[in-house]
Amino acid sequence: MIKTDYRPIGLRRMLRWLPALIWMGVIFWLSSRTGEQLGSVLPIFKYILPWMESFDWGHFVAYFVLALAMDYGFGSKADAWRMKLLIVFLCFLYGVTDEFHQFFVDDRTPDMMDLRNDAIGAALAMLAIKIPFIRRMWRKVAP
């Protein structure tokens, strides 16, 4: 078989991590904004689900996306449950650094509930892509 892709394998693996690294940068940038600058990022959820007032949907969505980007970075290795757990753990660790970063931003404070929401978002992303029909679609997009 003739190989048509002349890029080194290491470069392809590194490029797979680009979405996760970019998204981590987006999270860092958002954490650099004051609460007033952010306003309410996802007010529709608070309107639809008023009993979840204390749930920060912004953190949930940010870490749901980060987990998917990390899953893409790991590629087919991420299909194993232990890798899914590793991805949730890595997202949680990044959440810890995010909360530490917020300690230095005016009008922002570290919050354990944000870490909870980060972990829930990452865990639900990993559970969602373990559902067989979603997994098949995901692997077509992210082989």
Rank of each mutant, 00 (worst) to 15 (best):
P132W: 11
V41C: 05
F89G: 04
A123L: 15
D106N: 10
Q102M: 05
V41L: 15
W81F: 14
G39A: 04
S40C: 03
I9Y: 14
F28L: 14
L66M: 12
M113N: 13
S54L: 11
L93S: 01
A125R: 02
Q37N: 02
G25F: 11
V26T: 08
V26M: 14
D118E: 03
Y47P: 00
R16T: 00
L127M: 12
F55Y: 06
L49K: 05
I87H: 04
V96C: 14
T109H: 12
F104C: 05
D111L: 15
L93M: 06
Q37W: 00
D98M: 02
Y72F: 14
H101P: 13
P110K: 03
L30K: 13
F89C: 00
P50S: 03
V88C: 03
F92P: 04
V26P: 10
W51L: 02
V65W: 11
W23D: 11
F100W: 15
G39R: 04
P19W: 10
M70I: 10
W29Q: 08
F89H: 08
D111A: 10
G25I: 06
L90E: 01
D114H: 09
Y63S: 01
I87P: 05
D79L: 09
A128F: 05
T4A: 07
D106C: 00
F100K: 13
D79V: 06
R116W: 15
L11N: 14
M24L: 13
Y47M: 01
W29S: 09
L68I: 02
V96T: 03
W17D: 01
T4E: 15
P50H: 03
R33F: 12
L93T: 05
F74R: 07
A69M: 10
L49E: 06
E36G: 02
K84H: 13
V61F: 13
I129L: 14
K77M: 02
Y47R: 07
T109G: 08
G25Y: 13
A125C: 12
F45L: 11
M24V: 09
F28S: 14
F45S: 05
F28D: 00
D98L: 01
F92D: 05
N117G: 08
K3M: 10
S76L: 12
K130L: 04
L66G: 08
F104S: 10
F74S: 01
E53M: 07
L49Y: 15
T97R: 01
P110F: 04
F64H: 00
F55E: 06
A78F: 01
M14W: 13
I131G: 08
M52D: 06
S54F: 06
E36C: 00
W23V: 06
L15V: 14
S76N: 04
A78P: 00
K46C: 08
Q102P: 09
R116F: 15
H59G: 12
V96N: 09
D106E: 13
Q37I: 01
A119I: 09
M24A: 15
V105C: 10
W57H: 07
T109E: 04
W51A: 05
G75W: 02
Y6D: 14
D114Q: 11
I87L: 03
S31K: 11
L115N: 10
V96D: 10
D98K: 03
I48S: 10
M112G: 06
G73W: 02
A122E: 09
L21A: 13
G95H: 03
A80E: 15
I131F: 12
L21P: 05
W17E: 06
L90M: 06
V41T: 15
S31M: 04
P110L: 02
V65P: 06
K84Q: 09
G10I: 13
H101D: 01
R12E: 12
